[in-house]
């Protein structure tokens, strides 16, 4: 396989580790809450997944615990932001710091212990498609779940009753209230659900890619997720594309280095962020943003 092909292939697992937190962020932002605590939810998911796998030897139990840990982390942000009307950006950072501290302390005993990674499962038929088959369909099950979750989220948001209420809560909470729903409850649940999905991203990172725990191992994925959602203009399919762009940028260095070529990939690493800034500027200057309306207030709270 050519180097380019190898990069495109290696980018898949990392991209999926980014798809989860970005989808989670999208759900939360669609309800009008920006969640910088996504990074914390991922960390909690990663540690929960690893620790459970080590403790029980069951990787899939680890994945379930990762989801629960993510949701628990999200509930802190939801409580502060939805029930106490706290500043969303500050609360998100607080949740990140809390998760960073708690996971570092609780994970101290799991440091350096290696767990067996989730095995790759070839999809019969699809994996024998030339070129793309082995790349896309010879991955672990969490990657496939990521594939499914993207259209599922899109369908949920656009074509279900619940999705309509979610979107409306992000745009005009008062209308949702008038329609007989409870916008605060919707927001609370959306933040928790989004963080639970981010926890899955932590599981994919810890159990699907890395295979051990180290402090702060998510390394900014949760913040990248925020960027991806903007890049995607709050569309789940855009999230898939955006995550892949970031994933490719992250994969280039490791692949090129594996071929013995000394590189300095850091300027390349900055490129996706630059692209996201450009997209944000383009979207804002057109004056018609897809950003949920009530999120605008949240982004300009100074106290």
């Amino acid at each position: 396989m050519s180097i380019a092909g190898e990069i495109l292939a290696n980018a898949i697992p990392g991209s999926i580790a980014l798809v989860y937190p970005a989808l989670g962020e999208l759900v939360s932002e669609r309800a009008g809450v920006i969640n910088l605590g996504t990074e914390g939810a991922m960390l909690a998911g990663a540690l929960g997944g690893i620790a459970t796998s080590i403790g029980t030897g069951n990787v899939w139990l680890g994945v379930v615990v990762a989801v629960l840990c993510g949701a628990a982390t999200g509930s802190v942000h939801a409580t502060a932001v939805v029930l106490r009307r706290a500043n969303q950006l500050a609360s998100g950072l607080v949740v990140w710091f809390l998760a960073l501290g708690v996971t570092s302390v609780l994970g101290a005993s799991d440091n350096g212990q290696v767990v067996s990674l989730l095995g790759a499962v070839a999809v019969p038929g699809l994996s024998s498609i030339p070129v793309v088959g082995p790349v896309l369909f010879d991955q672990n099950l969490l990657v496939y779940l990521g594939y499914v979750l993207v259209p599922a989220t899109w369908w949920f948001i656009h074509y279900t009753r619940g999705g309509l209420v979610l979107r409306a809560t992000g745009e005009r909470p008062a209308v949702v209230f008038a329609g007989g729903h409870k916008p605060l409850r919707v927001r609370f649940l959306a933040v928790c659900a989004g963080s639970a999905i981010a926890g899955l991203g932590g599981a994919q990172l810890a159990l699907g890619i890395v295979g051990n725990w180290s402090n702060g191992m998510t390394n900014g994925y949760g913040f990248v997720a925020v960027a991806v959602v903007i890049f995607a203009r709050w569309n789940p399919f855009g999230v898939l594309l955006g995550s892949y762009v970031f994933g490719v940028a992250l994969a280039i260095s490791s692949v090129v280095q594996a071929h013995g070529i000394a590189t300095n990939q850091y300027l390349l690493d900055a490129l996706p962020y630059c692209v996201t800034v450009v997209v944000l500027v383009a979207v804002s200057s057109v004056g018609r943003s897809n950003a949920p309306e009530s999120q605008r207030d949240a982004l300009s709270e100074t106290s």
């Binding site: 950006l89 850091y266 962020y273 630059c274 800034v277 944000l280 500027v281 605008r296 982004l299």
Partner: peptide, 19 residues
């Protein structure tokens, strides 16, 4: 352009770090 400064400043952190 009206781009939310809270988001662009956050993104620029990563660009600065990469530089």
């Amino acid at each position: 352009f009206g781009a939310a400064e809270s988001v662009t400043t956050l993104l620029m952190n990563f660009i600065a770090n990469d530089i």
